[in-house]
Computed example of a mutant assay.
Amino acid sequence: MQANVVKKTRYFETTWFMWISLIIFPPLGLILLWRQGRYSKKKRITISIVALVYFVLPIIISTTVKLPLFNDHSELVSAFNISKKELNVSNEIMKVSKNGNVKTFKIDEDITLIENLDENGQIHELIMIGQGEGIDITTSLALLVGMTNTELSNVEIGDVLKELRFFDKDFKYDKNETELEVNTIRYNLKYDQTQGVIFSISKVN
């Protein structure tokens, strides 16, 4: 008597696992789709195209779309005021003016902040230019780091300035510059004899 042998279907050979894989991790789903051969070649090609677009499109978008620092000026002002309160500094936003895609204002009598805007009014870069006293520059830098990296503590903000070598008296800012990335934010610090301290902030994609 010949025994009837029933082959047990393993879970990765099932249709439901293939479709879940196509949704969660398309490369694996595509391997299963073609290995199982459940559908006609034309249908498998169609499914493959849809799965590849579904998988690749978010990657393309994330690498081509540049995220803003702030969605608009009012959001910047809100972040400014929160950071100002937490750091207990006296800076104020004043003398705001706009020219095309650039908005300029002061946060101290000798310290100017420049917003570079896109066509939607989103802020993609902040540039601080300062020629004031050392303490005014220090508090302004700390304020800007705090408002663009809200999760940092006051001590950690100080550490950022240290890593930028702001307190390093031997560093030649007129000849060199320092750059640091913290939590998707890029900081760049340099010195120009005519303009003073130049501190730029942008988003890292």
Rank of each mutant, 00 (worst) to 15 (best):
Q2C: 03
Q2W: 07
K7L: 13
T15Q: 11
T15G: 02
W16D: 08
W16C: 02
F17P: 00
M18Q: 14
I20L: 15
I20T: 14
F25Q: 03
P26W: 00
L28Y: 07
G29Q: 01
R35W: 09
G37T: 09
K43C: 01
K43W: 10
I49F: 13
A51W: 05
Y54E: 05
L57W: 10
V65I: 15
L69F: 04
D72H: 12
D72V: 06
S74V: 06
E75G: 01
L76N: 03
L76Q: 03
K85Y: 10
L87I: 07
N91P: 02
E92S: 10
I93K: 04
V96N: 08
K98A: 14
G100F: 03
F105E: 14
I107N: 01
E109G: 12
L113D: 02
I114N: 07
Q122L: 06
I123H: 00
E125D: 07
I127P: 00
Q131W: 05
D136K: 11
T139N: 14
S140C: 05
A142F: 06
L144C: 08
V145L: 04
M147Q: 11
T150F: 09
V155S: 07
V155P: 00
E156W: 00
I157V: 15
G158D: 02
L161K: 06
E163P: 01
R165I: 05
R165Y: 10
D168M: 11
D170P: 03
D174R: 10
K175R: 15
T178N: 12
T178C: 07
L180V: 08
L180N: 03
N183L: 08
T184L: 10
N188G: 05
L189I: 11
Y191F: 14
Q195S: 11
F199A: 00
I201N: 03
N205D: 12
